[in-house]
Computed example of a mutant assay.
Amino acid sequence: MIEFFLSYAQENSCAECIPCRIGTKRMQEIVKRIFDGSVSTGELSLLEDFAEDIGASSKCDLGKMAGKAVKFALQYCKDDIDAHLKGSCGRSIPANPGWQTVMLK
């Protein structure tokens, strides 16, 4: 979800302020490295700093929410992040068996 939201913020940013325009891109890059399991503890600390600073300094609510979303993900999804870092995240949740019926109507 956080990767999707950062992508959305990148695509829909007004690009008036540097924190939102560039900061969300840097956060997105670090989040992708989390999912690859190739992020360092220094980058996680940097991501936390980015989230705090971008949330506080963006002009628009989209940038503010991007910072808050990453901050909350780091705070409340620590087990998931640790699983990615250890390479033990299954990344596969079985889909609802009836999803095709709903989606293909």
Rank of each mutant, 00 (worst) to 15 (best):
R26E: 09
E3N: 12
A95I: 12
D79T: 15
A83C: 00
G87L: 00
S58H: 01
E16G: 15
E11Q: 12
S45M: 14
F50C: 04
D61K: 04
C20Y: 07
L47D: 02
H84P: 00
S7M: 10
A66V: 07
R91Y: 08
A66I: 06
V31T: 03
T101N: 10
N12L: 05
G90P: 04
C14Y: 07
S58D: 02
N96F: 09
G87F: 00
G55Y: 03
K86M: 07
S92M: 12
G87I: 00
E52L: 11
S88Q: 12
T101Q: 14
I30E: 05
I34G: 06
L46V: 05
F72Y: 09
K78R: 09
D61R: 05
L74Y: 02
A9Y: 00
G37F: 02
S57K: 06
A73V: 09
K68L: 15
A95C: 07
I34P: 03
F72L: 15
D49K: 14
Q100W: 09
L104K: 12
A9C: 08
S45I: 07
K64D: 05
M27K: 01
G42A: 12
M103I: 10
K86S: 10
K71Q: 14
A9F: 02
S45D: 14
P97Q: 07
G23Q: 04
W99N: 07
L62K: 03
F5H: 00
A56F: 11
L104N: 13
T41L: 13
R91K: 15
S58F: 05
M1P: 10
F50R: 05
E3H: 10
F5I: 08
G63C: 05
E43K: 00
V39Y: 01
A73E: 02
T41N: 15
P94D: 15
N96L: 12
N12A: 09
A83K: 10
F50Q: 06
A51L: 07
E29T: 11
G63K: 01
Q100R: 15
S88D: 12
F72W: 08
A66C: 04
A95S: 11
I18F: 08
K71F: 14
Q10G: 10
A9R: 01
V102G: 00
S88Y: 06
S92H: 11
Y8E: 03
K68M: 15
V39H: 03
C20I: 08
I2N: 00
D82P: 02
P97T: 03
Q10N: 11
V39E: 03
S7V: 08
E48I: 07
